[in-house]
């Protein structure tokens, strides 16, 4: 297994998310289809891990299993040491389909507030947290708007605010910027980096965009084709202070990008087995 090769575990403290031998086999009329073979990785406090893989590499299946929306065939998902069975407290998810993940009959404020209300947070604290989260994503002025009155990028910012306000142990993001235009995408990437650093969050970010994974993450996990295993786990040693122009111009960024790119290319032909050796 390609875990723990870069010493992250010994430096960073607590394991927030523990995934062990996770597998999923779908049983359909055409017989059994093995989507995910075996995945094992840990996510530590404060990590920003990006999961990349070729399309059809079981990324969404993995996300659904981690978030408790889909029961795995085998293996364990644990959040803060507690096994995940069904949607767990302490997990927040930002979906790709922003227009379909916010409640259209509620204002922006009510959307962000609802998870807190459900969790029984007292009203005064609730209001403060909602305002703080919306200010974090520069939408403090849109409290009373409805989601459909906002642009796509703004709607996704509301979804991010909703996740941040719930103070999750781990934040899952499922290709959250795949459906917005390139410029908005850059802004949202920087926004997520900012929120991550300010709140010391732990994020698992699923994407098919190699540049995005290197730019955002402190770590990039490359998945193989289905049946999925972890093909490689790369530490991103870029400076913490990142910038759309200067960071992407760094020689190290280009190196990492090439490395991940090659891994993904290789992953397209590699199913069900971890890469034994790779070019340095």
């Amino acid at each position: 297994m390609a875990t723990d090769t870069n010493g992250i575990r010994s430096i960073r403290g607590d394991v927030r998310l523990h995934v062990e031998n996770l597998s999923k086999t779908y049983h359909g009329r055409a017989g059994a289809v093995e989507a995910v073979r075996s995945l094992t990785f840990d996510l530590h406090q404060g990590e920003f891990a990006c999961l990349v893989g070729p399309s059809g590499s079981g990324k969404t299946t993995l996300l659904k299993m981690i978030s408790g929306l889909l029961e795995p065939t085998g293996g364990i998902v644990a959040l803060d040491g507690k096994r995940v069975q069904g949607p767990a407290k302490g997990l927040a998810v930002v979906f790709q389909e922003y227009a379909r993940s916010l409640f259209p009959w509620m204002t922006v404020e009510a959307n962000v507030e609802l998870p807190l209300k459900t969790a029984g947070v007292p009203k005064a604290e609730r209001k403060a947290r909602v305002l703080e989260a919306l200010n974090d994503v520069s939408l403090g002025h849109a409290l009373k708007s409805y989601p459909w009155q906002l642009s796509g990028g703004m709607q996704q910012r509301v979804a991010i605010a909703r996740a941040v306000a719930s103070r999750p142990t781990v934040l899952l993001m499922d290709e959250p910027f795949a459906a917005v235009d390139a410029q908005t995408r850059g802004e949202l990437e920087d926004l997520v980096r900012k929120v991550w650093r300010e709140h010391d969050m732990t994020i698992l970010f699923i994407t098919h965009d190699i540049d995005e994974s290197v730019y955002l993450g402190s770590r990039v996990i490359v998945l193989s084709s289905s049946p999925t295993v972890i093909q490689d786990d790369i530490a991103v040693d870029l400076p913490d202070e990142r910038d759309q122009i200067s960071t992407r111009a760094l020689p190290r960024f280009a190196e990492l990008r090439t490395q991940v790119y090659e891994e993904v290319q290789f992953a397209k032909t590699n199913a069900g087995g971890a890469r034994v050796e790779r070019a340095a």
Partner: peptide, 19 residues
């Protein structure tokens, strides 16, 4: 997706029906 969002944020039972 909306239904999954509700599940993820622990909105179930009566709250699910109402919201």
């Amino acid at each position: 997706v909306l239904s999954n969002s509700a599940k993820v944020y622990g909105i179930r039972g009566w709250k699910r029906v109402w919201h």
